[in-house]
Write a protein that binds this DNA or RNA. Structure first.
Length: 446
DNA sequence: TCTGGGGTCCTAGGACCC
DNA sequence: TCTGGGGTCCTAGGACCC
């Protein structure tokens, strides 16, 4: 099946994929060794909780990530569920990336626990892929004390399939060791694909799987003989081309080193669904989180989107793009509240999400706001008037949201008296600054 | 299996400009 | 005045990834 005993050239195996085993759960076990021998899940433990990561002991009971915690506990009554410590995972992830970077700077992280690397730059050093993969794996084990699976192949598609095959697996309720490193030789690519269900392909989730089933396509081999035009009517032209390519073992995706984030946001599923003033308060909290993230990245966002999910799991999104960027918590809260007002009331809300996109570098936005005030210059005495310009622009933007969607009655944010919102409001350090006098005047309306 | 939180990309329609 | 096509931006929803 795999070809670990052979020794491929860089042409035969230029792409490497590493995937840390049970990452969050493994970090928790390192931080608290008493968890080691127990079935462990990281995630929410409440009724609406979902499992994000599971150790192998828990997998023996059929618990896996993405499963609701209620179901997970039903399958494994002794399951220990701990809340995630994402600062810890990020620290481990940085160390992981540093180890990969020692091998080659040509790598692309996927989430915190996976990396694709292009090994072609190693040619002049005389390093072979298999030796590189083995030494990488040993360094991760030795220095991070984490296990991982490494895949080698001609492209990303097979490298990822290979790393999955390299990992431990469950057989008859017992954990079996995987080979650790797997190489898919070009000669065996077709045989690898033959056995796979379409669901194993990157980009095929439940929805696409069922669409493909309507066409009688269940295994990857079924895709090889299908008419791409007919397929496109079901899954779109882009997906159709990708899938047909995959079925022939073709994957043109390159390893992209510098990926700059295009959006960021915060969403939360509430333990109990919210409505009315509680919801408005939540917007303020979300705005503070988003604002902090924007300022950490030294960007402002021109587009804000608000998503609401109801108890029936249907969701609605409203977004607004401004001519200038924002990062101030008050400004974001004001726009978020205006967007919330524009969303039809369909009962209690279980999830609220606030997202920022269309980033602009903060300095560029400062310049733009300066232009918005003719006669302005860079002297510090202009700061107050520049903030004034920003406030007016913001008020216009909030009015625009209302004009587009119409306004529904909503409580004034200033009347809600939320500690959290008030604390965040006083922190303003960005273009709009704190506004002790006018507060939400322009934002919350009558 | 009754569904989290961080994101990415695609599609389709409408507005607007040339 | 009417019509056409292409390009770009924006909005909303959906699917997918880890």
């Amino acid at each position: 099946m795999n070809s670990t005993s052979e020794d491929p050239s860089l042409d035969e195996a230029p792409i490497l994929h590493v995937d840390l085993d049970a990452f969050f759960a493994s970090v928790e076990m390192l931080d608290d060794p008493s968890l080691r021998a127990r079935p462990l899940a990281v995630g929410g433990s409440g009724e609406r909780g979902v499992v994000a990561s599971v150790n192998y002991e828990a997998r023996r009971y059929g618990v896996h990530s993405g499963m609701s915690s209620v179901v997970a506990r039903r399958r494994c009554p002794d399951l220990v569920i701990v809340a995630g410590h994402f600062d810890r995972y990020e620290a481990y992830s940085r160390d992981f990336h540093a180890v990969v970077n020692d091998l080659t700077p040509t790598f692309e992280p996927l989430g915190l626990d996976e990396v694709f690397a292009d090994l072609r730059g190693l040619a002049r050093l005389g390093i072979r892929p298999l030796a590189a993969a083995r030494s990488l794996r040993e360094r991760v084990r030795g220095e991070l004390r984490l296990e991982c699976g490494v895949g080698l192949a001609r492209n990303k598609l097979f490298a990822k399939l290979a790393s999955r095959r390299a990992k431990p697996f469950i057989e008859n309720g017992e954990v079996r060791e995987g080979p650790g490193v797997v190489w898919v030789s070009p000669a065996r690519e077709v045989a690898w694909l033959e056995e796979l269900p379409v669901r194993a392909l990157w980009g095929v989730g439940p929805a696409t799987e069922s669409k493909l089933a309507q066409l009688g396509v269940r295994a990857v081999r079924d895709l090889r003989h299908i008419d791409e035009v007919a397929l496109a009517r079901y899954v779109g032209t882009s997906m159709a081309a990708t899938l047909v390519g995959f079925s022939r073992g073709e994957d043109p995706r390159a390893v992209v080193v510098e990926r700059t984030a295009k959006s960021l946001g915060h969403d939360q599923t509430f333990a109990r669904s919210l409505s009315g003033a509680d919801l408005v308060r939540a917007v303020g909290h979300h705005a503070a989180v988003v604002s902090r993230a924007l300022r950490e990245r030294h960007v402002v966002a021109r587009t804000l989107s608000l998503t609401v999910r109801y108890d029936d799991l249907s969701s609605v999104t409203r977004s607004q793009t401004l001519s200038f960027g924002v990062d101030d918590p008050d400004a974001i809260a004001a726009l978020g509240e205006a967007l919330l007002e524009s969303i039809p009331v369909r009962g209690a809300v279980r999830l609220l999400g606030l997202y920022a996109s269309s980033f602009v570098a903060r300095e560029a936005n400062e310049v733009q706001l300066r232009f918005a005030w003719p006669g302005g210059d860079a002297s510090s005495s202009d700061d107050g008037r520049r903030r004034q310009v920003g406030r007016e622009a913001l008020r216009d933007a909030v009015d625009e949201v209302r004009a587009r969607f119409g306004v529904r009655a909503v409580a004034r944010a200033s009347e809600l008296g939320s500690e959290g919102v008030r604390i965040d409001r006083q922190r303003g350090d960005a273009p709009f600054g704190p506004r002790p006098d006018d507060g939400r005047g322009g934002a919350s309306g009558p």
